[in-house]
């Protein structure tokens, strides 16, 4: 028999492919609805020399804005299928190459931060929700409320100020030293040191939402007969928190994850800008400043693809788990 998770994966695939296609269309048409085109902007600069009509036309086709919209779209899609996202003039490099260099850094931040804020949120929330109103609950809920009320970029700036400048124990920016060490161990250590503050800032932003979710669920769970019965059987400590509270929280956490992914990628953008971290967020920010539409389009499509991919997997797992009741 086909495992149910595969069925869930298949049933979720078509809708995500459709969403992705619509998004590609949106990304294609939006910049073209703006007045002017990249060539006009390029030419309006004081430094550029006057171009003849044929030269401008050649430049247009280079930028992928020659001919009618339908023709442009066809060309754009066929390029996209073979992985060609265009050429970024300000960076003088293909967009796919730029993204290939940036995405691992962004994924590194997310991969380090996600377990941190999920586990901290769940552990704290369960502990507080087990005995609402007790000392731990009052202290933890107070602290998390304060953290939740600080906007994410402010928290990042505060962290940077505290540990990067006032008490400079950690590097204040970048993902690596200017001249990376040849020793791979030393290099890994440097990367890890540079990632600490951005990961912390990202986790701080996300931890409160999962803390409150876990706490609320744990309060309800504590009243449920199966938990009370387990206490009556002498199940306690780690076992009670993981097999009883934790596993019941798992589907809820997954469901919340799938809708907070977009927010997470948004938060990465802030964090990368504050710590000048060379990930996609930094790339997108500079693309906006440079009006580098080609890069912007490529980055948006790839990020959206990533979000849809993660969201697809999480959804399928969550649906399979929910069947158990």
């Amino acid at each position: 028999m086909v495992p149910p998770i595969l069925i869930n994966l298949l049933s979720g695939l078509s809708v995500r492919l459709l969403v992705f296609f619509l998004l590609v269309l949106l990304v294609f048409f939006l910049p073209r609805l703006l007045p002017g085109d990249p060539v006009a902007i390029f030419l309006s600069s004081d430094l550029s020399r006057d171009l003849s009509g044929s030269e401008a036309e050649e430049l247009r086709s280079q930028f992928g804005v020659a001919g009618g919209w339908l023709q442009q779209l066809g060309e754009y899609l066929s390029n996209l299928v073979v992985g060609d996202l265009g050429y970024s003039v300000p960076h003088a490099a293909p967009v796919s190459q730029l993204l290939k260099a940036a995405i691992p850094w962004t994924l590194l931040l997310i991969a380090c931060a996600a377990p941190l804020f999920l586990i901290a949120g769940a552990a704290g929330g369960i502990e507080a929700g087990k005995a609402p109103g007790a000392l731990f609950d009052r202290v933890a809920t107070g602290t998390v409320t304060v953290i939740a009320s600080i906007p994410p970029f402010t928290a990042a700036v505060l962290l940077l100020l505290a540990f990067g400048i006032l008490w400079p124990v950690l590097p204040a920016g970048g993902a690596e030293p200017l001249f990376p060490s040849d020793n791979p161990l030393q290099r890994d250590f440097d990367v890890a040191r540079h990632a600490v503050l951005p990961v912390l800032a990202l986790s701080l932003h996300e931890v409160s939402r999962f803390y409150f979710l876990a706490r609320g669920e744990a309060i309800t769970l504590s009243q449920r007969p199966f938990i009370i019965n387990a206490c009556g059987r002498g199940i306690k400590g780690w076992r009670l928190r993981t097999a009883y509270y934790g596993r019941s929280l798992f589907p809820v956490f997954l469901a919340r994850m799938s809708d907070s992914l977009t927010g997470l990628f948004g938060a990465v953008l802030f964090v990368e800008i504050v710590f000048s971290y060379p990930g996609t967020g930094h790339l997108i920010y500079n693309a906006i400043l440079d009006r580098d539409y080609v890069l912007l389009q490529g980055a948006v499509i790839v990020m959206a693809g990533l979000v849809l991919l993660l969201n697809w997997i999480i959804d399928a797992v969550a649906t399979s788990l929910a069947r158990r009741g």
């Binding site: 002498g234 097999a243 158990r324």
Partner: peptide
């Protein structure tokens, strides 16, 4: 330390009496 060791409790079986996981 007492529960499940020196003292045991049997409750009526309602649907939620055991851990669903």
């Amino acid at each position: 330390a007492m529960r499940g060791r020196s003292a045991g409790l049997i409750v009526q079986a309602l649907s939620d009496a055991l851990n669903p996981h």
